[in-house]
């Protein structure tokens, strides 16, 4: 039973607000990780790593996907369902592409730079931090997949924009987080 009361709603939908608090929580986790990186990088035995170029490809994919999901949201609000479905599908493909690029980046690091899990330098942090971020993107990809299935095969028409707004906000968040992490590894690392 869904008990969100329309009468009680104030300025922001409770689910949207919940997402914002969850985002704050996720930020704290990555802040914890990058703080650990900073503390660790000032200690003896620290080993640097060259960030593989393929991660630029990831960056392009996720920034582009942020644009497409924003356009998808706009289409949904205009009740233009065909462009909505198309843009959502493109976002999904770009999301999957991002994860594939991440995987290739890890592979390059492992094979070419011979960065294994032995030690505790920038490389090991990179695997864990980028890996955790990729898991968050994967969560978004699954949500997108569900929404796409609903958009194509759903039997009831969906009028409320809230679910689309939620996934859009989340997707922008993982995009912004990626840009932060990329800049962090390029500058601090």
């Amino acid at each position: 039973m869904d008990i969100v009361s329309t009468q009680q709603r104030k300025k922001i939908h409770p689910h949207k607000f919940t997402l914002w608090v969850a985002i704050a929580s996720m930020i704290m986790m990555f802040a914890g990780m990058t703080s650990a990186y900073v503390v660790k990088s000032n200690q003896a035995g620290w080993q640097e790593v060259v960030v593989p170029k393929i991660f630029w490809g990831s960056t392009v994919a996720i920034v582009a996907s942020s644009l497409t999901i924003q356009m998808a949201l706009r289409s949904f609000k205009q009740r233009a369902m065909s462009p909505y479905r198309l843009l959502l599908a493109i976002t999904l493909i770009l999301g999957i592409l991002f994860i594939v690029f991440q995987w290739m980046g890890f592979f390059q690091l492992w094979e070419q730079q011979k960065v294994t899990l032995r030690g505790s330098g920038a490389g090991q942090f990179l695997y864990i931090i980028f890996g955790l971020h990729a898991l968050h993107v994967l969560g978004g990809v699954i949500a997108l997949l569900v929404m796409l299935m609903k958009a194509f095969f759903g039997k009831t028409k969906q009028y409320t924009a809230v679910p689309v707004e939620l996934i859009t906000t989340y997707w922008h968040f993982v995009d912004a987080l990626w840009i932060y992490l990329m800049l962090f590894f390029l500058w601090v690392g």
């Binding site: 929580s25 996720m26 704290m28 986790m29 990555f30 802040a31 914890g32 990780m33 650990a36 294994t116 899990l117 032995r118 030690g119 505790s120 090991q124 864990i128 955790l132």
Partner: peptide
């Protein structure tokens, strides 16, 4: 979430060979 960060690193140290 910060504890979770710490525990993820601990899990890697225990089981995957990081230091």
């Amino acid at each position: 979430p910060v504890l979770l960060s710490g525990l993820i690193l601990l899990f890697f140290d225990r089981n995957l060979g990081t230091s």
